[in-house]
Design a protein around this nucleic acid. Sequence first.
DNA 1: AATGAATGAATGACCATTCATTCATTTTGC
DNA 2: GCAAAATGAATGAATGGTCATTCATTCATT
Lengths: 194, 194
Amino acid sequence: MAKVIDESKLLRIKEAAIELVVQMGYGGASISAIARHANVAVGYLYRFYESKYDLVSDLLDDKLKDITGHLEVMMVQCSTIQQVITPLVNYYFHLAQHQPHHIRFIYTLINDYRFSILPDQHQRIHGLCRQLLLIGQETREIADVFTAEEIYLITVIYPVEFINVRFKQLFSEQTLSEDDKVRVVRLCMGALKG
Amino acid sequence: MAKVIDESKLLRIKEAAIELVVQMGYGGASISAIARHANVAVGYLYRFYESKYDLVSDLLDDKLKDITGHLEVMMVQCSTIQQVITPLVNYYFHLAQHQPHHIRFIYTLINDYRFSILPDQHQRIHGLCRQLLLIGQETREIADVFTAEEIYLITVIYPVEFINVRFKQLFSEQTLSEDDKVRVVRLCMGALKG
DNA sequence: AATGAATGAATGACCATTCATTCATTTTGC
DNA sequence: GCAAAATGAATGAATGGTCATTCATTCATT
């Protein structure tokens, strides 16, 4: 007698939550507004998530999983840092162009002291940065002085911040271009070189 | 008949607002909680600020003014980029060590899409970055390919993000040290070199 | 008829903001 | 020098709204 759960509704909830958290902040994104945007009853959200915090926390984890998953795939195929950074920045730009709310969502919550990266993703990100560091020091693309912490800042935080400075139109009102992508890759590679 | 406005109360309100916005986010920092923390009546806040948004927005502007003010002073005395970056990073670290809430506050709101840098500070930051770019290209400390946008990312965003990755203990549980300061300066200078 | 997915009114707490009131200080009148 | 009147700084209860969450009810499917 098990009825089918309408997956499109769950998707709409996720999309609405992401959009509203970006626009109004976590506190400003009310459950009733999320439900209204998703065209779903208020109570329906509690079928999948125990609380609003749970919903948003899970969404953040999903988005981070997407990034680490992508990075892991890229690292298997590549033997130089340049070969990892280029598709990684490509991925950020693709996300920024096709799902701008999603990259803003990550950005908003990664900077929120109430949310933190869950232990699982934390471990994976750690491992990936250490791996990058090893490869880069082998190929001499990364200076010896650097630690995994700096690799994280240069390869994850810097590109995301570049995109957000553009979104906020702080220095330029241009939309992200191919040239910008090249600039970001060049800056990352230059910074890693030391 | 003019009574004296108790400046310490206003200071306490500002301090409480900063602390609570950092801890609970803008939406979570209620006026009643701010007033309670500041040991002040709820209505008292409205003597100085028209609304909660006004209060927080003004505080952000104040903090940004502090940074741009410092940068302007530093640039008058210095003729090389190294001579600007070093005291600038020093200033960030000093803020991080002595007023951690304040740097977190800037960090939290600069990343919030509901708040933006007011036109006045915006202009000053623009001008400062352009000036840095000119000096750096003269002294060959900054590669020709860079724009003011990249100078901003490297000299403002990167150091602040470094500090916040530490605050969040993402890679290291160490508190900020003199060695870290040297690392940040080195990374900034290296990145600017291209 | 039975099941359980989906609903949305109801709940109690808390929100930002207001403003009649209180209270400390200053000015005035003597 | 002092009491009374005037001032305006400071208060916090009151307001009307919104919040997250619950759960009795409805409705579609089996």
